[in-house]
Design a binder for these strands. Structure first.
Lengths: 210, 210, 210, 210
DNA sequence: GATGAATGAGCTTTCATTCAT
DNA sequence: AATGAATGAAAGCTCATTCAT
């Protein structure tokens, strides 16, 4: 089954943006990467920003969709927290291409002046919503863990979320950079997984009730 | 004592680039922020990229300089590690303006194609060196702590560095975002400090010998 | 009897070009107006310019055809002159849609560079010929009126033609503008008719022989 | 004394727009005509539309300024009406370059979407005001003439204004076309002047009181 | 030192036109 | 006949950089 051109453009955009950064990505270069003409991008996407937002949205939707499934069955909040961050790693380490996503998250959006049309507002709102969903999901697991005495209350949930999220991001980002260089590997994928598990465990309280 | 024009430009660049991103920052807007003319920027800096690199370099030099001083007297590696990350926070939370630095660190560099002249190569190399110095400083403290049984050996030094560094970055970055919005504060400066201390302590081994 | 697709395209083109101007009219918008696909336009017309020229030609042919019929029976040159300009008004005021024609006449042609193929040259020549026929028709009526002492000889025939034609055009153009706005009517269709008759009469000589 | 670059651009714009029409004029071609770079146009003018509006405004201001002076001293409304249309001709026939103005008046503006900034709204309003001033000036002269029995009341003032204005425009436009071709002159400048005078006289009533 | 007019490469975006279906 | 995905030339516009003053 052949891939649709729209998906091809999205894939190419993820790759080029990951490599150069959104700021430095030209529509030309995305087109070159996809092996199509410049014009076709604007056939499928309203403009460059729309393309970027579409990429973001797709990623967040994937994450949330997997999380929702994982969290449908009951379980220990600490285990569930580990599972959520594993989702993140799973998605990124699935194949080399997926790693680009990890870099994308840090991307800075340009001045929002370009958001004029209703379509763009809707898309932007959708991203905000998906993001809130993800944040809320993590925060609630932490809060539950804390109230059940399983996670330390020494730090605010929001701060813990930042520590977990920040570590996850930076570890992954570094993996991406390694993958594009050669011969220089500080750590590998398994290190990242165990690092995240260890990190979360460090903040769990041993005698917490089940 | 009056600030030199060069420093004025650097300060303005930090602010504007932190807000808009390098690519979306115009020399015009930096000049406007500094209250000088566009042309003067090119009198003090070879080009726009030179200005960005100068900003990076300045920041790294500041960090390393403070660290060098702090680490000149002997001490417990865990305490020294805390001190190093405190340097980071001290520098960024010194005043509102300094927070821009925290944002800037995430900034991507443009394709290296623009680096042609010898001056630029030298400056880039200087940045790489300063960065290596900082990384080496942290890695060695961690290694020392591990060999003395004070820091867990469950994770590689490089991985621990990523966790500490990533958390520090993300926590600060969030603070910057908060500072530019209004009314919505998830945590404050003190939370960040204690978070970093707690984080490091979590990876220390209680019975390690002095 | 169903309208042919070609005529449908021509009609839609008249409307859209009258509203937006040739350069600002996209083939897309003509297709949308006609309820057909973009590609079909190029099946019936060589290119966009061909479509514009076809519209012009059609209009001139209509005018000349009606005039030819009107002037087939003999009559007073002044009356015939009135009749010719009435043709113009009749055609434009026939229905709301026809008013677009009045707007179109002012439309400029693009640089002739685009006219490469033989077909296009032929079409352009056809327009020039139809136009000459119309001009000649008016000029000859004026000349006849002058030589028979019915029209003032104070002004050259070409100048009188400009006065009659210019007034007719501007009066109609204004009507078109009124029709697309609301509530503001300086004059109506009947005013235009009587204005043209009055104008021509002003230049007739009372005691001219029959 | 050297001409300012801004005026140079305005002059070149008038010329190129008159030749090709606004629709078909590129900023590139204006720059080429002026012998400057593309970018400089956007240094002096916000965008292409701003340039066109500036050209319009300048022309209307010139006309109104001359009219105001002419009408400062009292006089017969018919004579004053002739004077006003003479202003028009004077301005256009002053030199070859000025003739371009005559063509400009018919130009069609692009979709007004481009009018976003406050500057543009102000400029556009200024044009509307100048135009209203011109129209009002003519209408009042006609009304005064009618109420004093010097001008026929058979036609509404607005209709008479169209006839006078339309004839003037078309006669001038034709002169412009002649000037760019060679060897084919249907009438000259003097014909236009006397045509306008004759035209106005035709609508005056002989026995009107002074 | 300091200015800002002037340049021109390069960007995003539009759209007539083609052509496989 | 009819469609619309795909192309690519060309448009308006931005902005780092230069340089005469």
């Amino acid at each position: 089954m052949k891939t649709s051109k729209r998906d091809l453009i999205l894939d190419s955009a993820v790759k080029v943006i990951a490599e150069k950064g959104y700021q430095y990505t030209t529509t030309q270069s995305i087109a070159r990467e996809a092996g199509i003409s410049k014009g076709l991008i604007h056939f499928y996407f309203e403009n460059k920003l729309d393309l970027l937002l579409s990429v973001f949205l797709l990623f967040l939707q994937k994450i949330n969709s997997i999380n929702q499934e994982k969290l449908s069955s009951p379980g220990d909040p600490v285990d569930r927290l580990k599972a959520v961050f594993a989702t993140f790693q799973d998605l990124l380490f699935r194949d080399k291409k997926s790693l680009y996503w990890g870099k994308l998250i840090n991307e800075r959006l340009p001045q929002a002046d370009a958001i004029k049309s209703e379509t763009m507002k809707i898309k932007r709102q959708a991203i905000v919503n998906e993001n809130k969903k993800l944040v809320k999901c993590i925060d609630e697991l932490i809060k539950e863990g804390q109230s059940r005495g399983m996670i330390t209350t020494a730090l605010k949930p929001q701060v813990l979320r930042q520590i977990f999220g920040g570590s996850s991001q930076v570890l992954t980002w570094r993996m991406y950079l390694q993958s594009s260089r050669e011969g220089h590997f500080e750590y590998d994928q398994d290190d990242v997984r165990s690092a995240m598990e260890t990190l979360i465990e460090k903040f769990t309280v041993k005698g917490g009730k089940k």
